[in-house]
Design a protein around this nucleic acid. Structure first.
Lengths: 190, 190
DNA sequence: ACGCAAACGGAGTCCGACTCACCTTACGGA
DNA sequence: TCCGTAAGGTGAGTCGGACTCCGTTTGCGT
């Protein structure tokens, strides 16, 4: 049920501006405070808090859109690759995605490693996308059957949260380890 | 070079008390602030900061001791198990260790996924311990050769940072995936 | 045009890490 | 044994960032 009454025009504009400013801030990882985000959006903190209960909710909202985009790729990958290869490509893609800005990685980590209801939507969506990616691999005996989207999601969380200097190479390396782990117990593995 | 002059008696006592209070607070995960830790140690914040530059340094110091204990186990495990089994047991042990208190997990995550010089000692020590554990497995063809302690450490970081409710089961599951990933490319794998 | 609910502004509160100017005390030397 | 002094301790205060509150402004239905 969408809000009983549509937003007033100025309110909708401000909401958009806030999301845009927040996206800019979070994805480039310049960890701006709420004050700064509001300023860049041309509104006051009060307005920011009218639209988003907490900073975290704003973060979640920004990221929900990114996640939606990411969640659309499994279908595309499955159309172009064998199930196991599609999974491998997706894992690497995720690391790339987290690498765009440090902010992104932190949000991904929060989505993946916490229970926070704020991220429920994004989490469910991504788990579903991963299930979609895993199922054909399992069916084909390329992927072990004792895993599901949620587990893979949680396993990826750690990778995305890495904050060390040479983290991207390490993350790719670890994604490969995880991928191989996912194939290890498969019917046709070897 | 240890401090040019030994600590005065009262200073040493207070330092001990602070470490004890901090250990208590961090390992039980009741995330106490510096004020509270100082209070429990029977000193003021000023004194806390005389001994530890920042809260993080205090955390690091508390954890260095835990890490040292953990780092001693690989040798013991190798004496009792085949190299690959020793590695498996160690990974599970680490999850148990992180489960003791939520605080511990967070510190482990920081050690593993950041570059913070504050944790250099603990990190080096743990990477060395893991190398010690990996080497015989690689030599025996049971573990793939393209990994090292640092990589495994970073991979584990994510697991330890998990804050969700049913995290421990998931963590064990993921540790298994990682373990299998580490065996996947081994000479004798299959 | 008018009224008013919806939305906005921004000074102010809260909270936790951290600082600093001043006070206290251990302890080595006379 | 007592003194000088530097090491050590104290806690009110600063700082920064998330969040709140209420007086003011404004879109929009009538």
């Amino acid at each position: 049920m969408p809000p009983s009454r549509p937003l007033r025009a100025d309110a909708r504009r401000n909401r958009e501006a806030l999301l845009a400013a927040a996206r800019e801030a979070f994805l480039t990882g310049d960890d701006a405070g709420v004050e700064e985000i509001a300023r860049r959006a041309g509104v006051s903190v009060g307005t920011l808090y009218r639209h988003f209960e907490t900073r975290e909710v704003l973060v979640a909202e920004v990221y929900r859109q990114e996640a939606a985009e990411l969640c659309a790729t499994p279908t595309r990958l499955l159309a172009q690759h064998a199930p196991d290869e599609a999974l491998r490509v997706f894992l690497l893609l995720l690391v790339e995605h987290a690498a765009v800005g440090r902010g992104m990685g932190e949000v991904l980590e929060n989505i993946m490693t916490t229970d926070s209801p704020v991220f429920d939507d994004a989490r469910d969506e991504m788990a579903r996308a991963l299930d979609e990616l895993l199922a054909p691999g399992v069916a084909a005996g390329l992927i072990r059957s004792d895993v599901n989207g949620r587990i893979v999601l949680r396993a990826l969380g750690g990778i995305c949260g890495m904050r060390a200097k040479g983290w991207k190479d390490d993350a790719l390396h670890i994604a490969t380890l995880l991928y191989d782990g996912l194939r290890y117990g498969a019917a046709n593995h070897g």
